[in-house]
Simulated assay, not measured.
Amino acid sequence: MHAHPDHPFTPTALAHFAGSSVRSLQESFRRHIGLTPMQYLRQVRLEQAHHDLTNSDPTHTTVTEIASHWGFTHLGRFATTYRTKYGQSPSHTLRQPARAAPTATWRRIMRQPSHDRRGSLSRAGPGAAAEVKPGRACGR
């Protein structure tokens, strides 16, 4: 999930990849992370969208482009979820003057394969336990 957060995962595909049933995968995620696999994936994607909003040039990028790229098709729900987690609207984050990356970053990223997006996708903490490996069931 961390390596390809923009991949269109489904619960069935994740369970197959993990070598378990959908129910077993969901229970393992709930037990170890406190979320279902899809809730966790949305959280990962929201973090990626936040990173892109923080590091993009508002004159060349829109909230809609970033949200759509990360699989958020309902912009109202995306904005509400984003505001709840980050305390401001996605458009406010995009317009903030301090940028950590060069202005052409978003356009350059969009031309690269998704697996080259960031080198620091795996982090210590709850996310590390959620990495799904082929043929291995979560929680075993």
Rank of each mutant, 00 (worst) to 15 (best):
L14Q: 04
Q88I: 09
L14R: 04
T54D: 02
A101W: 10
F78P: 00
A15T: 02
Y82C: 00
S21I: 00
P37S: 07
S91N: 11
E65I: 00
T36V: 07
E47Y: 06
Q88T: 15
I66P: 00
Q88S: 14
S20Q: 09
R77D: 09
L46W: 03
P102E: 09
A79Y: 04
R99T: 12
H32C: 09
H32R: 14
T73S: 13
H69M: 10
T105L: 13
W70I: 02
T93H: 09
G76E: 06
E47R: 04
L53R: 00
Q26M: 06
H92S: 14
A13V: 12
S91M: 08
Q88E: 15
H60F: 12
E47A: 12
T105H: 11
E27V: 07
R45K: 07
T61Q: 05
T64Y: 10
Y86G: 01
L75A: 08
T36L: 11
R23L: 12
L25W: 03
F78A: 03
Y82P: 01
P97F: 13
A104S: 14
R30V: 13
F29T: 00
R45Y: 06
V63N: 03
V63A: 04
D52R: 03
L25Y: 06
L41P: 00
D57R: 02
T84R: 14
S28A: 15
T73W: 11
Q43F: 12
E47M: 09
T62D: 05
A15N: 04
H74Q: 12
Q48G: 11
L94N: 00
L35I: 05
M38A: 09
L94W: 03
G76K: 06
R95N: 14
A49G: 01
R45T: 03
Q88H: 10
P58L: 04
T105Y: 14
T62S: 07
Q88F: 08
A18S: 06
E65W: 03
A104Q: 15
G34D: 07
V63C: 02
P102N: 11
A100Q: 14
K85C: 07
H69K: 08
A67M: 02
L25V: 05
S24F: 10
T93S: 08
D57V: 04
S21A: 11
R99Y: 07
I33E: 08
V22G: 03
T54R: 05
A100T: 08
S89I: 02
S56M: 04
T81C: 02
A15V: 04
Q48M: 11
Q39N: 10
T84C: 07
L41D: 02
V63P: 00
H16D: 15
A98V: 15
R30L: 15
R45G: 06
E27A: 09
E65N: 02
P97H: 14
H50P: 02
L14E: 05
H69C: 10
R83L: 11
R99E: 07
R31V: 10
F17H: 13
S91A: 11
F17D: 01
L53K: 01
S89R: 08
A101Q: 15
R31L: 15
L46D: 00
F78H: 01
E65H: 01
R77V: 13
H51G: 09
L14Y: 05
S56F: 02
Q96N: 10
T105A: 13
V22M: 08
V44M: 05
G71M: 01
A101T: 03
S20F: 06
H69N: 09
R95Y: 10
A98H: 15
